[in-house]
Design a protein around this nucleic acid. Structure first.
Lengths: 346, 346
DNA sequence: ATGAAAGCGCTAACAG
DNA sequence: CTGTTAGCGCTTTCAT
């Protein structure tokens, strides 16, 4: 590919495909080539090694990873799986998960691992997790989001160590999870709303995913303690549907609340828009708090007060724990504290 | 894993690891097991096949894909690579690319392929593409975004068929690309701004990435023809930095423009916020058009008029073309027409 | 420091 | 229909 001959390009500089090709060219044995190019370069004389390296470059040789990995019983690949439980189309562009994925990719790369991504629809495939694990293609698995598969994941965890899950921690669970303290996050949100003067709160979103349920529960605890009400306005998780549902609700009901805790920033943004369209001002008439602290939170007008999840730290921790588990170490789950980012909407 | 014995869990139902283990249990040869479980199930008597399948389930057996794939010389894996050229931190959460990635994952899954994701920083790794291709791990490669690597990609394409790139099409290029007609998109944006009454336009963003340069060029052509000016307000591509840069510009200069064409929706949203903070109204004082039509575009207040890229179709096309190229077919590039989505900001 | 040989776990002829 | 055999391309003892 590098240098090409002028005319007769028919037989290009023979591209050495296998280590044996290269061995023949160098006049050594395949074993020597393997040693020269692979891990143990010290076991080869500098002279031969340099000759082999030059030849390899010249002939565009590269190790066949498939073969190498089979032989060494290490794939160098971590599987990342996104289960699409409820709202199949939500996660297609779920910004939070995608951002987490980006950080995971960086972190795995830094540790010399490749990332194999798989999106599965559990209802259509009972054994989604086992299949991935048993494929022999991955040394470990990272699960992004428990979706509605908490029990399935827990079962699998009994027989499979090298797995770390992003999600919510539940007392007594058996899988190693990294995630935000959603309950605490819910508390922070409700406290902020109340401190900002709200008396009647509304939780926006679904409380079916376990993370969201915990956020609601945290808010509920505060509301109860403070003698404030907390209703639920159920919506889908993608902004378009949610906006429609919110608008519909507002048309059908009197506005009886003055503080909204949205289960995610995405929902908060949709809510803010619908309110503004109806001339309801934020934060004057209604206080609004989101969850996640995605980049968009800072870009709304007014800027969104929200509960921040530290995605970068989360990703680092997941990879760190996974590598330790691959090495055989048992590890505890990790619950990260969320923080309230106070902007203008509450 | 499925059913567990009550007490003595020490020796669990011997997990058959290899096809040979299973053959021994079934009293047949490894070859028969391979046939029963693999492609040609027809070549095995129903009775033996069912016995083998039952045994496989019972002992939690799964084919070692690494071995199978090595033997068959098919990896069943498509590599997806995101080159991080200029703005290393832009793409970390570039919503457009991540959404495209989501659709690609779906589409590849539908065709039975796994997806291996790799993010590379070309400046740090000259041979990023060759390395991925030559690894023997992937049957084909999808590149998301040309970044500043147009020439590198073009070179590689000469010697490697199964590659499809998302990006901008340039006359005479040699790699197969799928992308939006960015020039046309730029035209649509400028035409809309002018039709909405704008007389002095400003292009917001970087014109360094080739896609953005084309968007600018398209807008410029219209502006020139209509006798309207078109300036450039250079910014980074992530909203936080961009917002700062826009604010800075507005503080240092008189506002001499009445129409803004933002190179992406992300930038448009940031711009809208900065303008609103200064009491400049959109679209009354300044018309604003974005690019991409991300979900957020419908959620701003006022909703964003923007040039839509059809991501779903783009992803489908990329996979379709790639599969044909893997099959040895030569394929042309595909340029998709963008459409103007008219909302309220212009 | 290097070569020879034995597989990693599976599949695909080729026989029967 | 099933067993046998010969590798896929590489790594790793074990000799020398």
């Amino acid at each position: 590919m590098a240098d090409r001959k002028p005319e007769v390009e028919v037989v290009s500089p023979k591209r050495a495909r296998t280590i044996t090709d290269l061995a023949r060219l160098a006049g050594v044995s395949p074993g020597t080539v393997s040693r020269a190019l692979g891990g143990k370069r010290e076991l080869v004389s500098t002279k031969t090694r340099e000759k082999i390296e030059a030849l390899a470059r010249e002939h565009g040789f590269q190790l066949n990873q498939m073969a190498s990995r089979l032989r060494r019983q290490k794939t160098g690949v971590i599987g990342v799986v996104i289960p699409l439980g409820h709202d199949r189309h939500q996660q297609i562009s779920d910004t939070f998960f995608m951002t987490l994925l980006g950080y995971l990719a960086d972190e795995l790369t830094n540790h010399g691992y490749d990332l194999m991504l798989r999106r599965v629809i559990p209802d259509q495939d009972e054994d989604w997790l086992d299949r991935f694990i048993g494929s022999g293609m991955v040394e470990g698995v990272l699960v992004i989001g428990q979706s509605d598969q908490f029990d399935r994941i827990d079962e699998v965890a009994d027989g499979y160590m090298p797995m770390v899950v992003w999600g919510n921690h539940k007392e007594g669970q058996r899988h190693c999870v990294v995630g935000t303290d959603n309950r605490l996050g819910g508390r922070l949100a409700a406290e902020r709303l109340i401190a900002a003067g709200a008396k009647k709160l509304m939780f926006l979103g679904s409380s079916e995913p376990i993370e969201f349920a915990a956020r609601y529960a945290g808010a509920k605890a505060v509301a109860d303690k403070m003698g404030v009400s907390l209703g639920i306005l159920p919506t889908h998780l993608n902004p378009d549907e949610a906006a429609g549902e919110i608008a519909e609700y507002l048309s059908a009901n009197q506005i009886t609340f003055d503080g909204v805790f949205a289960a995610s920033d995405i929902l908060a943004v949709a809510c803010m828009k619908v309110l503004q369209e109806r001339g309801v001002t934020v934060p004057d008439q209604i206080k609004l708090v989101g969850f996640d602290d995605l980049p968009i939170a800072a870009q709304t007008q007014p800027a969104l007060t929200t509960v921040k999840q530290d995605i970068a730290t989360g990703a680092k921790s997941m990879v760190n724990l996974l590598l330790r588990r691959i090495a055989g170490e048992g590890t505890e789950s990790l619950v990260l504290p969320p923080t309230l980012v106070r902007r203008q909407s509450a």
